[in-house]
Write a protein that binds this DNA or RNA. Structure first.
Lengths: 350, 350
DNA sequence: TTGTATGCGTTATCAT
DNA sequence: ATGATAACGCATACAA
């Protein structure tokens, strides 16, 4: 005979025994199931009963035990965020976006930074997903481009949404920005100002984002009737130092480029650094455009013109796809980036 | 009569029915409880049985269901990180540190950005902790300074550790850096180089970190036998713009300060911006020291001398205090910051 | 519209 | 050293 009753006063030292559905049922004089119906907003329920139970719930400060719910429903309420730290601002923006969506739901956000170069990457993530029995995961670039990883998630019965700069997946499992077009527009702005010798710092090979930006650049040049000059194109690894080194090469070119598009802000900052060392005035003698709109962009001098992903809305949408896949809102997969025009760009010197 | 058996082949479409403790028990020919003992490494257990069961576990790829465990043990395995975005780099460093500790445990990290100015702050957090039934939480500055919030966590039976720049709590519930002393040393470096007119940009009132840095600055001056000059002290709100405005005031002072300590990097970047606009050469005519060593610090020009918190080790220690409070490692509460010397500081002009 | 019996996967109690 | 059985808190199937 199970005892359903509890002491009215919790024993001292015990971590505040919380009221359960049984307490609510007993006090309001109904069955557990009825309380359960109230919690789950079942439509077939007497108005009077509902209000009575709700009153008791409020009075007791009853909060349904998510673990018990998860057990009974055989599904958890955890959204996983798996990333390999693309940049801090992005990760934080993503977290904020996810939280906007899951606020006022039962879902929580659990994060998992990983090392994409670790040989145990897949095993680690498998263990993580299985152990926590995640409801769904959001993959950030660049590991969102890893198809093996995506297959793993699916194998584990864990829905996923990938964030990226190209069509990595179908629209139900993707939030993407149009990097290619955004770069094309950035280049169009430069050419519109009269720039003809435009340098390019590519991102690391193997990154889809790097590839897309590269294509966008080439297309942008083509649209303006310009021919790509191999001497004005170089490659970095998205880090500051590589941008600095890229700068050394580009600024050695003769004649020097009057503008440079860098595939991300950090490398752009490195380039700026190199230009400054040589006494090259930015933007008078050299215009610079970056990509990402990280915190650095607005805080260096001159402030950096850059392309900004709508990170927060994208992440919010991604979370929406995870927890409400059938909703109409969950169909948007493409999010437009915009060019943030700051002081690092000017017309070329006469 | 409960049926304990399962089909050998999972039904198609069903999200991969995972093996349970019952499966393991049945196949290895022991009781659930014995399997449970194996999982929990109970000492009183036959070696033969243990190995037999472990073999089956490995073969089946059995992973214990954390939700069920949480339910039975009446405690969850979630560590919460509650913060009001002090800065992206710090939050990410903290996440990395926590993860270092909980990797290879059953714990997971769930994050919760909040708005410290929201009137619903306490209610939101209460609901979050109750709903997720967090095992413990880590509070980041500045909300770690909120004693009401700390009391709330305790009331909810949720252990907490606070991160801060002063002794907010006893050593079991605190990881702190010695901001005051770090600033004192930074000032000592400046005075050692010969600076006598040193400006100060304080952080916002109400922040413990701001107060500590202020005190450290005053003490540093005193140690060098210098008298604080009210005209050289101003206050910002930790944002770039306020640093810029502070710069306007400080650089108007006559005679101009030869060095300025800013209570964080963002404001230092703003100050640098202001100096540049006036054609003041940094560091030749003006030395600048910041605080935090954010990504900005190393990427502006000149690279910023700054004070760096050992964020990752601090967070790792904090997580350790949460999940292994009795461990000896959990006793360290104070972590020393160090001065990162970069090009933004030079001796004053003759 | 509401209640009863049972299951979810694990641990705890108390046997043997 | 191992096992039978009852929790843990909630949801579902099926009655009533």
């Amino acid at each position: 005979m199970p005892k359903e009753s509890k002491p009215d006063v919790p024993a001292a030292g015990v971590p505040t025994a919380k009221p359960t559905i049984n307490d609510v049922a007993r006090i309001s004089g109904v069955s557990k199931k009825t309380v359960s119906r109230v919690i789950n907003k079942s439509p077939l329920l007497g108005q009077a009963t509902r209000e009575k139970v709700e009153a008791v719930i409020a009075e007791l400060g009853f909060v349904p035990n998510l673990q018990a719910r998860a057990l009974a429903l055989r599904r958890n309420f955890l959204i996983g965020l798996i990333h390999d730290n693309p940049n801090a601002q992005m990760v934080l923006g993503v977290q904020e976006g996810i939280l906007q969506t899951i606020r006022d739901t039962e879902f929580a956000l659990v994060v998992r930074p990983v090392d994409r170069h670790s040989p145990r990457l897949l095993d680690d993530i498998r263990h993580f997903i299985e152990q926590q029995r995640l409801y769904g995961v959001l993959l950030l670039p660049p590991i969102s481009e890893n198809d093996e990883l995506a297959a793993l998630c699916r194998e584990l019965g864990c829905t996923l949404v990938r964030m990226g700069s190209a069509e990595l997946d179908d629209e139900a499992h993707l939030v993407a920005s149009n990097d290619r077009q955004a770069v094309r527009e950035a280049v169009a702005w430069l050419t519109g100002l009269g720039h003809k010798r435009i340098g390019f710092i590519a991102g690391p090979t193997g990154f889809r984002s790097a590839y897309e930006r590269e294509q966008g650049f080439a297309e942008g040049l083509a649209e303006a009737g310009l021919t790509p000059d191999p001497a004005l194109a170089t490659r970095g690894d998205y880090k500051f130092e590589s941008g600095y080194e890229a700068g050394q090469r580009l600024l050695d070119a003769l004649p020097r480029p009057t503008a440079v598009f860098s595939s991300n802000d950090e490398m752009a900052a490195g380039l700026l650094h190199a230009a400054r060392e040589r006494g090259i005035d930015v933007p008078a003698q050299l215009s610079i455009i970056g990509f990402d709109d990280t915190a650095i962009a607005a805080h260096i001098w001159p402030p950096l013109t850059t392309v900004r992903w709508p990170i927060v809305p994208m992440a919010a949408a991604a979370a929406h796809k995870l927890i409400e896949p059938s909703d109409a809102l969950s169909r948007q997969a493409l999010f437009l980036s915009d060019l943030v025009r700051r002081a690092s760009v000017a017309p070329p010197e006469a």
